[in-house]
Write a protein that binds this DNA or RNA. Structure first.
Lengths: 206, 206, 206, 206
DNA sequence: GATGAATGAGTTTTCATTCAT
DNA sequence: GATGAATGAAAACTCATTCAT
């Protein structure tokens, strides 16, 4: 709301910025930060190299903007999925379902996202990490609070701290998503969220 | 057994190779593949650059050798941990405990290992990936077979396929280890394996 | 004709390309392919090393472009010399005279040319050889056809096949040019083409 | 004469030196000076690299020794061919015939030889050139003296100076040998020396 | 006398970034 | 505001040569 008073100039600028980010997303997700050159991004976005530098100070800056933007989109979608349900178990089911949906619809985005949240990126960029991890932490708190209120309502047994439960759920879904990413045929992400949920909810040993 | 008949020459060579790999491990784990130069490795190992190239054809080759060697060490230790116990639940406890121990004792090795088993490395190296993933897959099978026999013996409820249970256990322990890696003070890896075990074993909802 | 509509940018680019080729010609002809570094060429042409690589993919590519261009110039001049005369003997006289002239005016070019047409280059570059040799072969055919028509007109006795006669004339002139290259004082290339011509035309034994 | 009192030690040394030179000859002739490494030569000769350096101070030194030795063999054979005949025309026929024979029997040697006598080597090695060219010059004098005495005896018409005639004969035979080297099927070196001889001896125009 | 591990100067090539037009 | 030619630091890798054993 309020964007409508942007001048044509401004709107064009934003469109160009977006085009560059889109080209960058595809390339980075495919080849990784170090195997993509600024010229490549410029070429794919159909701009001159100088133009790219008009929008982003340097390669890191571009990457940072890209990752943060994608992470935001991702977290927002998940947050909304949680909020849409009233009851805690349903919130978690929603989370599992929507995570799979986003994943399948945005493989590029996801590859990028994991590269940054998982340790593996070896601080591709020191500065980025801290911002990203902070947001990731905040999102984990949101997830934890679902467990917390579920425990309060006696819906859940307190088998671990809410935060650990959040981490467990996150890692479990990520693991399934990785399996899918590597071999979608053999390891489809379950349509039914309970396949994943049960691993947490039904104790192995009774 | 039988190695003792290596000539001194040969033994020296192996020691030098090891020294180079050690220097490389520390650097790669700290900065990532692309932020370490061969000269840097040579300098750290206190050899001339040419010497490094006598042992490893190129940078990829060195990296590959390093990762495979570390992964082997890691998997062997875990396999042994599993085999040492007789009973399935104890096997899993051992796995959780030893994984934490190795981790804490070899932070460099672990960072390297995760960079390669988790998708994040964006195919730093196509060839490597396949070998490493294959070994990782085999290890997952080993872990799965523990769950399988546990289910057969009616020790475990079959809340998911053995393979998925193995993946769940692996991802859960990894998640705790990542937490520890980021902030060892706030998120220590639990001394008591049951803290992690319970998340799997005691269903959240009864 | 028609080049005049090149943009200034384009014209500058071509000039720069030419400048690099000129620097390379001088250096290669003086020291040979393997004793010239790309940095040296860049320095001589007064460009940064990166600029040289903007114009030529790699060292071989630069060398190839250079040799082909020079060979073309050389062959074109000789072809024209042959075509300018009406009569066969005069065509050959022209060939001998012009070959000497070009040679004296472009020592660098010639050194390069011989390095590639004569076997000595030991395939400095496999790909180049084939292109160059093909062109050389075609030129020999042109020369042979002069002898052929001379023989048909009964101007020449058929003491060998036209192709062999062409080869003989070529090697004879080359030999004189080599003598000159080594010691211009003692072995000047004859002003009078008949000095060379007679060796072919007047049988030693009657 | 006199070699027989060499100690076994000495004889072995010479044999080893010879083995190294043979390996080097094959490699240099195949790939050219700059594409052969000292390690390659050592490996082919089945010696350690240090041993090669016991025999030859450095790569140039080895190359020099090789080329000079081969040139000597070549020139001696040709000199003998000339001396074996009594009459000048026969001497020249012998020269043409034997040159072809040596060539066919020692392609490696010849490739090396031409690389050095023809300008093309771009002074692979400044020092070498002077020695080699001097010997080549001397040999040309020998050949010239055959023409000189033929002219004195009125066997030959003096259509050029004896030296130029020698150069002409040399370049003509070389040209035929090059043709053969490139495509032995299509351009065999003539069995009958008169095929080459006639080009010099029977004037094209009468 | 032979060995081969070690050396390090020197080469090719890439790519993020600048800036004149 | 866009362009793209030019820049040059930095990286991977080679190979002639040395020297301790």
């Amino acid at each position: 709301m309020g964007q409508e008073q942007l001048s044509r100039r401004e709107r064009e600028r934003l469109r160009h910025r977006r085009e560059i980010l889109e080209a960058a997303l595809e390339l980075f997700s495919e080849k990784g930060f170090h195997h993509v050159s600024m010229h490549e991004i410029a070429r794919k976005a159909e701009f001159a190299i100088g133009t790219v530098y008009k929008f982003f100070e340097n390669k890191e800056d571009l990457y940072k903007a890209l990752v943060l933007e994608q992470a935001e989109k991702f977290h927002n979608a998940l947050k909304q999925a949680i909020e849409e349900a009233d009851e805690e178990i349903e919130k978690i089911r929603n989370y599992i379902r929507v995570k799979g949906e986003i994943f399948r619809a945005n493989v590029s985005m996801i590859r990028l996202y994991f590269a940054e949240t998982r340790g593996a990126s070896f601080n591709v960029m020191a500065g980025l990490d801290s911002t990203i991890r902070e947001r990731y932490g905040k999102f984990m708190q949101t997830l934890a609070s679902v467990f917390e209120s579920g425990i309060k309502k006696k819906l859940f047994k307190k088998i671990a701290t809410p935060f650990y439960l959040a981490v467990a759920l996150d890692s479990l879904t990520n693991a399934f998503l990785f399996l899918w990413l590597e071999d979608p045929e053999q390891h489809p992400y379950p349509e039914d969220p309970d396949v994943i949920l049960n691993i947490l909810f039904k104790g192995l040993v009774d």
